Amino acid sequence: MKMIMSLVLLTAVMMGCKTAKNTTQSPPTSGVQQLTIKATPCYGTCPVFEMTVRSDKSANYLAQRHNNGQQGLYRAVIDGRNYEQLIALLMATDFPNLKEEYTVGATDLPSMDLEITYEGSKVKKIHDYGARGTDELKALYDFVKTLRETQQWQRME
Rank of each mutant, 00 (worst) to 15 (best):
C46H: 09
L90M: 05
R65K: 14
I78K: 12
F143T: 00
L7M: 13
E101G: 09
Q154H: 13
R65C: 01
S26H: 09
A131K: 10
L114G: 06
L62G: 07
N22Q: 03
L7Q: 12
Y102F: 14
M3D: 13
I4Q: 11
K99G: 00
Y83E: 11
D79H: 14
N82H: 15
S30F: 13
P47L: 01
A20P: 01
N68A: 15
M15R: 06
N97L: 00
L90K: 02
L10F: 08
R65V: 01
T36V: 03
C17W: 12
M3Q: 13
M112T: 06
S121H: 15
C46D: 10
L137A: 02
P47W: 05
N68M: 14
A106I: 12
I37T: 07
T52K: 08
P47I: 00
N68T: 15
R148T: 05
S6C: 02
G69F: 10
S26C: 04
L10S: 04
L35N: 03
V8F: 12
E101L: 06
R65N: 09
K138V: 03
G80F: 13
M91W: 08
K122I: 02
L10R: 05
Y61T: 02
D135I: 02
C42E: 10
S26V: 12
W153Y: 04
S58F: 15
N68I: 10
K38S: 14
L7T: 03
T11H: 07
S30V: 07
K124A: 01
P96L: 06
T24M: 01
S111Q: 10
D56E: 08
N67C: 15
A92D: 02
L7R: 12
T107G: 10
T146V: 02
Q151A: 14
P41T: 00
E136C: 00
N67M: 11
A88V: 01
V123M: 03
A139K: 13
T40I: 01
G31C: 10
E149W: 09
L10H: 02
K122Q: 14
T45W: 11
V8L: 14
G16M: 03
C46E: 09
D135K: 11
Y43F: 04
N97I: 00
M51Y: 10
E50I: 11
Y129Q: 06
L90H: 05
P28I: 04
K18N: 05
Y61G: 03
Y102Q: 09
D79W: 05
F49R: 01
E149F: 14
C17M: 13
T11I: 12
N67F: 10
K122H: 14
R155T: 03
K2E: 14
N97A: 00
R75Q: 15
G120P: 12
Q85G: 03
A88D: 07
Y83D: 09
V48T: 08
F49K: 01
